[in-house]
């Protein structure tokens, strides 16, 4: 006799409870109770201090019509599986280009020989930063990584970061602009952005794994973008909102259209903040690309994972150092580029 029997009896729900008797397999607790051979015998009354919490499983004992917790989990799973297919019909075509971009970019980075790619990256670094120091650091880092045979892994990681950052900026800047223009939009977006940033990354990997198959590159692409897009949205919004009121007023007073104001005043003046957002987006992509190796993202993360799985300490440490190197060089390069922009924006 279960603890809450009396409750259902007094509520007059006994008939409803027993209507669907003898369905479903027995729970472990029931099995135990059965095997102890105590069926039918009067159990001693449960002392008040041991009153069980009226959870689904406890209530189920008293009233079989109430579902057990494991039924609930199954229900969630079934519901998820049920909406999965319709959702895929919509999501697949939208996200497919992401797979193509990621795969294409990987293929491209692999196809270009090292003696072209490294100088090209160095030229890009110098063009963005105009600093010999940073450029030299990038050069040394790449030569070192290549020398210890981590070149292709590092390039894969870079390729993923490159694609994900591009997409984050392409989506994040317009979103940030929308947020800056409407307070309602901002109120709606901020909790979502907060959630994306505070959720442990593993938690949203799970639905993604079910939604897309692990063999598709867009799976890790989406995981990275969801995580890394936040700062660029936030800082675009902030940057545009922080544009000097007087300058905006001048733009209005001279009869600028919204478009002229956006592209001629607001975006250029928000650029230092937007660039700071891009810097953070790059750093967060790097953090996520390592975690995303769990869901088949290639790159240095795979080596780290191997180090953890197989307890290959050396492999893990060296590839970890490679990631640190990439992090520092990406950060230095974008910060130096940012500094250059800031310098030309003094008011």
């Amino acid at each position: 006799m279960a603890f809450y029997d009396g409750l259902f009896d007094t509520l007059g729900l006994r008939d409803w409870c027993d209507a669907g008797q003898e369905t479903g397999p027995m729970s472990m607790a029931q099995l135990l109770a059965q095997s102890s051979g105590a069926t039918g015998a009067a159990e001693p009354a449960t002392p008040l201090l041991q009153t069980p919490f009226p959870s689904l499983d406890t209530l189920h004992e008293a009233c079989p019509a109430i579902a057990q917790t494991r039924d609930m989990t199954t229900g969630v799973e079934n519901a998820f599986l049920a909406i999965k297919n319709p959702l895929k019909v919509i999501l697949d075509p939208i996200t497919q280009p992401l797979s193509w971009l990621l795969d294409g970019s990987l293929a491209f980075f692999h196809a270009v020989p090292w003696f072209i790619l490294i100088p090209a990256l160095l030229m890009l670094t110098y063009y963005a930063t105009r600093r010999w120091g940073v450029t030299a650091f990038v050069a040394v880092s790449f030569l070192f990584l290549a020398f210890i045979d981590h070149y292709s892994y590092a390039v894969e990681t870079l390729s993923i970061i490159f694609v994900c950052t591009m997409i984050s900026v392409a989506l994040g800047v317009p979103l940030g602009i929308l947020m800056a223009r409407s307070d309602t939009m901002q109120k709606i977006s901020i909790p979502i952005l907060d959630m994306l940033q505070t959720l442990p990354t593993f938690v949203y990997l799970i639905p993604l794994i079910f939604l897309f198959s692990v063999t598709e590159s867009k799976l890790y692409g989406i995981a990275i973008i969801l995580y890394a897009i936040v700062p660029v949205i936030r800082l675009t919004d902030l940057g545009i909102r922080l544009v000097d009121r007087d300058v905006i007023e001048a733009a209005d007073a001279f009869g600028m259209t919204d478009r002229q104001k956006l592209f001629g005043v607001q975006i250029p003046l928000a650029l230092p903040n937007i660039m700071a957002g891009i810097n953070q987006t790059i750093m967060m992509s790097l953090a996520m690309v390592v975690i995303a190796s769990l869901v088949s993202a290639p790159g240095l993360g795979v080596l780290v994972l191997r180090g953890i799985r197989n307890l290959e300490l050396g492999v893990g440490l060296v590839s970890g150092f490679g990631i640190v190197l990439l992090a520092v060089l990406l950060d230095r390069t974008t910060k130096a580029a940012l500094g250059r922009i800031n310098a030309s924006y003094k008011t």
Partner: peptide, 11 residues
């Protein structure tokens, strides 16, 4: 219009 704080486009 001419403004107290100039309000020129800094860029």
């Amino acid at each position: 219009m001419v403004f107290q704080k100039f309000a020129l486009l800094p860029h």
